[in-house]
Computed example of a mutant assay.
Amino acid sequence: MDGTPLLRVLVALSCEEAALNPPPGHTLGYYFLEEREHIIYYGRENAESESSLNPHRDYDEIEPTIDNWGYLTVQTYRGSGNSTIGLAPWVRAHDHKNHEVVDPPEECGLDVALKLAREYVIEETGLEPSGPVSGQTGLNSWA
């Protein structure tokens, strides 16, 4: 036995655990981890709750920044491994409402996308994680 299937299972479990661990200043708002894609929304703590049915503000007129849009979103397509990291005005916002804020490398997968999303939050807010973060600590290592 070459261990490759076990390694894939361990990496998948690490990714799922890392997805449930929000970046600093955020809470887990919604996640969808399925065979074809992963979608994760992290809500900014103390942000005003918004809904697509009755938005409080016109998001077409507001510059998308981490301070004035309520959600950080990470989406990965498992077949290609391509990911997007962006801001959204509310949970499950349609693609045209999301604003990409990080340009991840092609085929980076969920593990790298989560790491880049955390780095973006730390860079934009200056907040540091309050404890150990599960998931990828570098491009070649896991915590």
Rank of each mutant, 00 (worst) to 15 (best):
Y42V: 05
P64I: 12
T73E: 07
E63A: 13
D60H: 11
V121W: 05
V74P: 02
Y41L: 06
S83K: 04
N46W: 10
S80P: 04
K115F: 02
V91N: 03
I62L: 15
D60I: 14
T73C: 09
E119Y: 01
V133S: 00
L116H: 04
E123N: 14
G79L: 05
I62R: 06
T65C: 13
S83Y: 05
S49Q: 14
W69E: 07
G126F: 07
E100F: 01
T65V: 15
T137I: 14
T73K: 02
G131A: 13
K97V: 06
I66W: 05
H96R: 13
L72A: 11
H96S: 10
D58V: 06
T125W: 07
D95K: 09
H94G: 11
K115N: 03
E48W: 09
L110D: 04
H56P: 05
T76N: 00
E107G: 08
A93G: 11
L114K: 06
N46A: 13
I122C: 15
A117P: 01
R118D: 01
E45G: 03
V102K: 02
T73M: 14
E100K: 11
P129F: 02
A117T: 01
D103L: 05
S134K: 05
A93F: 06
G43P: 07
D58H: 15
E100V: 11
H56N: 15
P89A: 15
K115W: 01
K115E: 01
R92Q: 12
P89N: 12
H96V: 12
R118H: 09
N82Y: 06
T76Q: 00
T125I: 02
T125Q: 10
S130A: 10
V91P: 01
T76F: 03
S49C: 13
L72F: 06
E123F: 09
E107D: 11
S134L: 07
A93N: 05
P55E: 09
S49P: 08
E100T: 13
N54E: 12
E63S: 13
N98W: 04
G43S: 14
I62E: 12
T65H: 11
W69T: 06
E106F: 00
N98E: 15
A117S: 04
P105T: 05
E45R: 15
W90Y: 14
G86D: 03
L110C: 00
D60W: 12
K97Y: 09
S80V: 03
G138V: 02
A117M: 03
S52W: 12
P64S: 11
H56L: 14
P64L: 12
E48I: 15
Y71I: 03
E106W: 02
G126A: 09
I40N: 00
N68W: 11
R44E: 09
N68V: 12
V102G: 00
D95H: 06
V74D: 00
N46S: 13
E124I: 08
Y77C: 00
L114D: 03
G79H: 08
L116K: 00
V133K: 01
L110A: 04
W69K: 06
